[in-house]
Each structure stands twice: as structure tokens, then as C-alpha cells.
């Protein structure tokens, strides 16, 4: 922790020292001190919490939908090879399309608001979750399938205790990439088509030339993204216990 604080302090000190020699205008690039003052003002106003909550809510809804769909479909396609042969090419064609490219269609179909954001977040996180889970499922060694059939384990138990549990480390890789993508996508969606959220907050302050507040919004995005990833890692440690032994 000390090392991280030290590294950040060095960068901030260097950044601040630039202003001693080059007086850059605040609306172009504010100094760390200006951003710090702005940061405390933004937090005091409490309005920012409304935007944070709006973004987080969109991420949570879209990400959860992507998790259920991604894990569920990957288990299905990975286990039932015939189903996978039919439907995986569709997934593979859709996967390279950047989620941001879907924003105009999302707005056309769902209008401005939460539904569009849910959809974009869903698309952003679905593919990494699906792909990683799928590779987990298909890499289950044949010996475990044989053992499961020898012991007459039912299909439900096989899916829950063998296939799903074996794939969990792969699923968590997908979830960690997926949550990052979800957070990127929600900000992108809010920059274009929303009336709330951190993306909207940045866009609003851009129009008002309040660069310091824009940067506060960006710092909040980075910090919250870091904590979302941290939460997933903590859940992983609690769930995938056998990996830590």
C-alpha cells in the first residue's frame, strides 16, 4: 500500500512542479492542487453521489444479466457440443463488434435512458464472461465426465458440482474482464445518451469548460473501477478456495 501511495505521490509532485515553470491554463489542464480543491467541492455538493449511484446501478444490472446469460449459455454450448456448433458462430460474429458501435441502435430501440445503458453494459461484459466460461467448460478433462457417469451423478449435480465448479476459475477471469468492460461501456453510453451518471457528469462539465470537474469525474471512474475489480477478486478468493491451498 505504501509503495502505491509513494508512486502516486511522485507522479502528482512531478505534475504539480510543471506549473512552476509553465503556467498552463486551468481549463486546459488543471494542476493536482486545483483538482484536489474541486474534488472536495464536488464531494461536499453530494450531487455526485446521485451520478455515482446511477452509473453503478446500470453496471450492476447489465453486468448481472451478462453474468447469468454468459455463464448459462457457455455451460450449455460447452457441454452440448451440437448446440454449440449451431450457435457459437453467431456469438463469434457478434463478439468483435465494439459495444460502443451498438449505442445508436440501442437508443433507437430503447430510447434515451437506463434500458439503453443496460443493453450496452450487457454487451460489453457478456462476451468476456461467455468466452472464458466456455473455454473452462470445454477443458474439463474427460476423466471427470467418466467418473461422474460411473457414480451415476444426476445431470443437475453434474452441472452444479462438476462442470460449474471446475469452470469457476475461468468464470472469474471472465468476470474480472467483464466488470472492467461494463464500467467502460456505461461511461461511454452515458456520454452519448443519458441524463445522469458519471459519463453524463463529465459531458456536462466539458460543455461548461470545467476541466477540473471533468478530471474529478475521471478520477472517480478509475477509483470505482478499481474497487469493482477488487470486490470480484475478493469474492473469487472466498469462492475458489481450493486455488489458495
Amino acid at each position: 500500500m505504501l509503495k502505491k501511495i509513494f508512486a502516486i505521490s511522485i507522479i502528482l509532485a512531478l505534475w504539480q512542479s510543471v506549473y512552476i515553470f509553465f503556467p498552463i491554463k486551468g481549463y486546459i489542464l488543471p494542476s493536482p492542487v486545483e483538482i484536489g480543491i474541486s474534488f472536495s467541492e464536488v464531494l461536499m455538493s453530494k450531487e455526485i453521489f446521485f451520478h455515482i449511484f446511477a452509473s453503478l446501478q446500470r453496471v450492476v444490472v447489465g453486468f448481472l444479466m451478462a453474468t447469468f446469460a454468459g455463464v448459462g449459455l457457455a455451460l450449455l454450448f460447452g457441454h452440448y457440443k451440437v448446440v454449440g456448433e449451431y450457435f457459437r458462430p453467431i456469438v463469434e460474429i457478434l463478439r468483435p463488434i465494439p459495444p460502443i458501435a451498438w449505442i445508436p441502435i440501442a437508443i433507437l430501440i430503447f430510447g434515451l435512458g437506463n434500458a439503453s445503458a443496460y443493453f450496452i453494459v450487457f454487451l460489453g461484459s457478456f462476451f468476456p464472461i461467455f468466452t472464458n466460461t466456455y473455454f473452462g467448460v470445454i477443458s474439463l478433462p474427460k476423466i471427470y465426465r467418466n467418473i461422474a457417469s460411473s457414480f451415476n451423478l444426476g445431470r443437475f449435480i453434474y452441472f452444479r458440482k462438476i462442470l460449474f465448479k471446475f469452470s469457476l476459475p475461468y468464470i472469474f477471469v471472465g468476470l474480472k474482464i467483464g466488470i472492467g468492460m461494463a464500467w467502460i461501456c456505461v461511461i461511454a453510453a452515458e456520454l452519448i445518451g443519458a441524463q445522469s451518471g458519471l459519463g453524463y457528469f463529465i459531458q456536462l462539465n466539458r460543455l461548461l469548460l470545467q476541466t477540473d470537474k471533468m478530471l474529478v469525474g475521471m478520477i472517480l471512474i478509475g477509483t470505482i473501477g478499481y474497487f469493482l475489480n477488487y470486490i470480484i477478486s475478493k469474492i473469487e478468493k472466498l469462492t475458489v478456495k481450493w486455488e489458495n491451498k
Partner: peptide, 12 residues
């Protein structure tokens, strides 16, 4: 069957 390979469910 008890095989030469490790066939125990290592996550349990």
C-alpha cells in the same frame, strides 16, 4: 475405476 491419473475432484 481407480486410475493412474488424478481423478479426484480437486475443487472438493
Amino acid at each position: 475405476v481407480i486410475s493412474q491419473e488424478d481423478d479426484l475432484f480437486y475443487w472438493m
